[in-house]
Each structure stands twice: as C-alpha cells, then as structure tokens.
C-alpha cells in the first residue's frame, strides 16, 4: 500500500466514524501538510453528508401501495385480457420516440409486430402489471428492445418458457413481440440448459430477465 492509499483509507474510515485514536492523530498530522488529502476529505465529507439522509416516508406511500394492491386484485378478477396488435399509427409514433432514447446498439422496435394488452371490455390499453412498459392509456410507450440490457444482471432467451418462470410474470412486453419476466437469478440458472442464449452484460444489474422469444 502506498502512502497515498494509506491516507485515503484513514479518510474513508473517518467518514464512517471507524478511525481509532492513533489513526486520527496520524491523519491530522498529515492533513496539516497535505493539501490534496484535505481536499479529498472535504469533497468526500460533502458526498457523505449529502447521502446521510434519513427521511420518514410520507403517509401517501403506504396508502398508495394498498390502494394499488386493491386495484390489482380487482383487475385480475374482472378484466379479461386479449392480445392484439398495436395500431400501426400509435406504434410508429412510439417507435420514433423509443429510437431517440435507446442506446446505439439497441434494436429498433419492429413497427409491424407490436403486442399490447387491451381490455376486451373497453378496448382501452391497460397495464398488466404496475411497470409494464407498454399499452398505458394514451401513451403507447414502447419499451426498448431486449438488447437494451442496462441494469440487467443476466438475460436468458427461451423458445418455450419453463412453467415455473412463466408463473412469475410477464413483466415486460417488447415491441417486437418478445415477452420478458423478472425472475430470481437461481431460477434462471436452473434453466440454463433450456435457454437458446444467455447474456450477462451487467453483473451489477438489479434484475434477471427471462425472455420468451416471439415467433418472428
């Protein structure tokens, strides 16, 4: 460990309130002569302070969640879903929007093959799940393609989805007809051999994704 790294570690420990007396004395003496470390400590203290927030959640949080739960229960009992194609005009507009925000390597949604969920009672697009990416009323916000894997830990692609994965979703419906399921990593791993392809682009990602490929 270099001297520099040694004092970086003392600074880091001090931020966490974990620096012992001996280390504190050593750091203080060093700070008197090292402007660079003084600046590092000041900057990191600012960052640490900015993140040392403890707020009480607003009452609206619990209320909103429980209302959403109630709605979801009612919807699942009363609304019959059917799959249908997105109106070409709406999809074209959505595709134009989506293209602007997709990373350069992402596929452009296929404007002829979009799939949305509609309520057969009202003909209005509805969200299957709270964060379904498409089919929201008045906003056919087509999700990126399955190649847009930012934030995904692993994505496995299936021709036929294993039943235990199918039970967990679907969570995403892509414009090209593919359907995505957020699944625990272990579940994805258990079906590794059945996948036609597995991508692991971002091990830091928050979710694992199983993708049922459409027939196109």
């Amino acid at each position: 460990m270099t001297d520099h790294e040694h004092f970086e570690e003392l600074i880091s420990l001090r931020l966490d309130g974990a620096l012992d007396e001996e280390g504190e004395a050593e750091l203080r003496a060093h700070l008197e002569t090292c402007r660079e470390c003084r600046e590092l400590l000041a900057l990191l203290t600012g960052v640490h302070d900015a993140l040392s927030i403890e707020k009480d959640p607003p009452e609206a949080l619990l209320r909103g969640v429980m209302e959403g739960v109630e709605r979801a229960e009612k919807t699942s009992k009363t609304v019959k879903m059917r799959w249908t194609g997105i109106a070409a005009g709406a999809l074209a507009a959505a595709a134009a929007l989506a293209v602007a925000f997709l990373p350069h390597n992402a596929k452009t949604p296929d404007s002829d093959s979009g799939i949305a969920a509609y309520s057969s009672d009202t003909g209005t697009p509805v969200s299957l799940f709270p964060d379904t990416k498409i089919g929201l009323p008045g906003e056919p916000a087509v999700c990126g393609s399955v190649d847009d894997l930012t934030g995904i830990r692993a994505a496995a692609y299936f021709r036929e989805l294993p039943a235990d994965i199918a039970q967990t979703g679907p969570d995403y419906i892509f414009a090209n007809g593919d359907v995505g399921y957020d699944v625990p990593e272990e579940l994805l791993e258990a079906h590794r051999n059945e996948a036609v392809r597995i991508d692991t682009p971002d091990p830091a990602g928050a979710v694992c994704l199983a993708v049922l490929l459409s027939d196109q």
Binding site: V65, G68, V69, F129, P130, D171
Partner: peptide, 11 residues
C-alpha cells in the same frame, strides 16, 4: 417506492 412494493406484491 410505490412501484417497488406493487411489483413486489405481483411477484
């Protein structure tokens, strides 16, 4: 937060 809990509920 609400999205998180609703997603959790569904899954």
């Amino acid at each position: 937060s609400q999205d998180t809990f609703l997603k959790a509920y569904q899954n």
